[in-house]
């Protein structure tokens, strides 16, 4: 797979490699992508629920 690349410190990469293997990931790339996807989704969700809260306040459903 070709795409943008991200630089990591060698020490961090080794640590992630060990963690990925222990967690059953076949490659460290697969592990990193999964973790980043989850982190992005969580952040997006927090932002979205803040917007939902504003909407519900506007409609009079939340104080």
């Amino acid at each position: 797979m070709f795409g943008p690349k991200v630089k990591l410190q060698a020490g961090l990469y080794d640590r992630l490699k060990q963690t990925a293997a222990a967690a059953g990931y076949s490659t460290v790339d697969e592990f990193i992508i999964h973790v980043l996807e989850r982190a992005a989704a969580e952040t997006e969700c927090v932002e979205s629920e803040a917007e939902v809260r504003k909407r519900l306040q506007g409609l009079g459903y939340i104080d």
Partner: peptide, 21 residues
């Protein structure tokens, strides 16, 4: 409903926000 509540703060991209919620 919002049209009758001018005090409501404007919100954008609500479809996406509701989908995520």
């Amino acid at each position: 409903m919002l049209a009758t509540r001018p005090e409501a703060a404007p919100t954008t991209d609500m479809r996406l926000h509701f989908e995520r919620h």
